[in-house]
Design a protein around this nucleic acid. Structure first.
Lengths: 221, 221
DNA sequence: TTGTGTTAGATTGTCGGACAATATTGTGGG
DNA sequence: CCCACAATATTGTCCGACAATCTAACACAA
């Protein structure tokens, strides 16, 4: 657990609501409501808002307060292009660390559900598993700063925003790619792991290109 | 100019002081001093602190307030490894955009001082020029999200923290590498631009490895 | 002298209320 | 139905308060 302070707690709670789509993209966060609900002061909530905004979870519009972040198509594409690099790097490094038992073990544990019988049912469940999978790669890469950076890219947020365009076929393809990546990493083949990961991300980028305009925010003000 | 609010202004002013080493790594920021100096309330200052912390400029230690961020060696190395990827990507993309007149022109303008007679004198001046150069690459890459990310890596901050280990030789080598990168980008040779940039970053990483322990923070708490 | 416990002061964490500025909503007239 | 305008809701910023915690000075014993 990071900071044990009250504020960190609030930040986490709001973050969780966003990542689990209990708060959806574009939704407005009214100070009065949240202070009442959490039983905290406006000062504290506003500090939490600042932090959440700097971390990319919400957006602060002058004189209009906080809204759950909603990406434009261009922002989403930029984000996925960056992820392609960072996650390629992470997969490469992760593969190179699979000979360390502790690293290997925790990666195996985190990915074993990919090979279980249980089918992923809904979009919401997929989003959570997807996030867990990608996080596992970053953790296995052993660069904490990188993990932090990846977290700030808000994968669950954007997937939730685009969830209306997720089809069963896409989920199946994604799952298959996750398996390939996992096998490449576990085999210790860094080049293959990086290549598979980049392919996966390129496909995700193409997916974003095809999502109907209505799911995005119009102007990136 | 981004947000026109009062808070954004305060954030910028503190940021500038850090980037120009008027506030140095590890230095403590006392709320009472800054509220008096800026003529603002504690609420506002504390919101600014939150944002600066989330952006990596300062660190908030529970019950001890804000200090200008001071990296451990490991954090610095992690940061440079990430930069190697992101800046390689940026250089590649920048090279691919040099045929667009506007992009080319602004990149040429930003880099022309690299080829002027004027020698960089002190470390402080080098740090500023170094930041400007690297930012120019990210801007030329045409991915705003990426530029933002790069900014949050706080190059001036870390260079300032390590400035005690900068020698004339290092500055000269760096300048030479900057020139090579610039030429590769201007030539539109993406592969070469990326390679040269990665080499430059790898050398920077090696530099970090050799810096005496005293310039780093001990435990990354 | 040096180490140590204590106490006073400095600083932060959080709260509550206040008020102007701005945004949103509701209402009546055209 | 659309527009102007008043009423309300919400945010931006300030102030002062208080307990919790940290820091520094100081006295005292070894």
């Amino acid at each position: 657990m990071s900071s044990t302070g009250k504020l960190a707690n609030i930040v986490e709670r709001i973050e969780t609501r966003i990542d689990t789509a209990r708060l959806v993209s574009g939704q407005r966060l009214i100070e009065a409501d949240l202070t009442r609900e959490f039983g905290i002061s406006r000062s504290l909530l506003r500090e939490a808002f600042r932090q959440l905004a700097a971390e990319g979870a919400i957006e602060l519009v002058p004189n209009r307060g906080a809204v759950v972040r909603r990406l434009s198509r261009n922002e989403a594409l930029e984000l996925f292009e960056i992820r392609t690099e960072l996650e390629g790097m992470a997969a490469r490094r992760a593969a190179g660390r699979m000979h360390e038992p502790a690293v290997r073990h925790s990666f195996e544990t985190a990915t074993q559900c990919l090979f279980s019988e249980a089918q992923t049912s809904g979009a919401q469940e997929y989003i959570a598993e997807n996030e867990a999978f990608h996080r596992a790669i970053f953790i296995a890469a052993g660069n904490d700063t990188l993990s932090d950076l990846a977290r700030k890219m808000r994968l669950p947020l954007i997937m939730s925003q685009l969830s209306g365009a997720l089809t069963a076929g896409i989920l199946a393809t994604s799952l298959e790619e996750h398996r390939s990546i996992t096998l490449a990493i576990l085999s210790g083949n860094a080049a293959q792991a990086e290549a598979a990961t980049r392919e996966h991300l390129v496909r995700a980028t193409q997916f974003v290109s095809g999502v109907p305009e209505s799911l995005f925010r119009s102007c990136p003000d």
